[in-house]
């Protein structure tokens, strides 16, 4: 190919390389920009008058109680990040608890049980859900889902972590489903044939042979779903109530890191302490997603290797 291609071929190759490098460069530049804006939180004495990294972690003691508060607009601004971190984790876990079993079950059905005709309808239909704008999901959660949840569970707040998590689950289902389904279908046919030949039933084949073989791919699906859930903004802004409460109760309102950035970044004066803290939050979120993806990949690779060695 290369020998025959000549000049045109080279040009295309270079063009594609440039495009690929551009996208990496864009990500790097974003990283640098976010880091640069967040850096004053660590280094600037000007910012330290309002907030220090230690102040973002330590509680405030008031009348014998240790309080973790996020109150950036105040005579004494309080930038404790724990309520936000806990808020993000709460809604993300709820989303994964609902979305993962549902999506993986759907993937098993579509990959292993559905006939070709059914599959051709169901798969695109589920994947189409990914195209529903998150503002629409958020609005549905805000108006309808919140009332149902309150009626069924009698939650203290109408808008709460559970509602936001359910909304998020809806948003991440298509991704988890799609990746999990691909993983299941990538399991070689010979595995299934061998299992069936040994006399196992369909269910045994799926649960004991195909599913374990596809485990790395399914784990990857969950990691992707996690990244999307923790980074999602619109749904949680609309459905979580955004009260920065530090508690584990899913029936109470929660404020996530992303919702905080979305609600407050528009207001701040560029270069103020509040502005820098919001970028520090962004950097934190970026790091968290990066770390999860990185270790997720390692785990997936490990599983893949173990399976490869075993087969």
């Amino acid at each position: 190919m290369r020998r025959r291609g000549g000049l045109g071929e080279r040009a295309v190759e270079i063009a594609i390389q440039v495009v690929a490098l551009l996208s990496i460069a864009a990500i790097l530049l974003i990283l640098i920009f976010v880091g640069k804006e967040a850096l004053p939180v660590l280094t600037s004495p000007e910012v330290h008058k309002d907030v220090t990294p230690f102040g973002m972690l330590a509680p405030i003691h008031r009348s014998g109680e240790a309080l973790y508060m996020w109150q950036p607009v105040s005579d004494v601004p309080k930038y404790n990040i724990f309520p936000l971190v806990v808020g993000s984790i709460k809604v993300t876990i709820v989303a994964l608890i609902f979305a993962v079993p549902l999506s993986v079950a759907a993937a098993i059905f579509v990959a292993e049980y559905a006939r070709e005709g059914t599959r051709e309808i169901v798969k695109p239909a589920i994947e189409l859900l990914a195209g529903v704008p998150s503002v629409v999901v958020g609005f549905f959660a805000l108006v309808t889902l919140a009332s149902w949840v309150q009626a069924v569970f009698g939650t203290e707040h109408r808008l709460n972590a559970l509602v936001a998590g359910l909304g998020l689950a809806f948003a991440i289902c298509p991704i988890v489903f799609s990746v999990a389904e691909d993983a299941l279908r990538a399991v070689p046919r010979s595995y299934r044939e061998a299992a069936l030949a040994m006399g196992s039933t369909r269910a045994q084949t799926v649960l004991r042979v195909v599913l374990p073989a596809a485990a790395p791919g399914i784990a990857a699906a969950v990691v992707l779903g996690f990244g999307r859930a923790i980074g999602e903004t619109m749904i949680v802004v609309m459905a979580s109530g955004n009260a920065a409460l530090l508690d584990a109760n899913l029936g109470r309102s929660a404020r996530t890191i992303t919702a905080t950035i979305a609600q407050e970044l528009g207001e701040v004066v560029v270069g103020s302490a509040h502005y820098d803290v919001l970028f520090a939050l962004g950097a934190m979120l970026f790091t968290a997603t990066f770390v999860v993806n990185f270790f997720g990949e390692r785990v997936v690779d490990g599983m893949r290797r173990r399976l490869g060695a075993g087969s």
Binding site: S74, H157, A244, L245
Partner: peptide
Amino acid sequence: DFAAAVQTL
């Protein structure tokens, strides 16, 4: 300061 339980919309 507002109570932490105020839901901000």
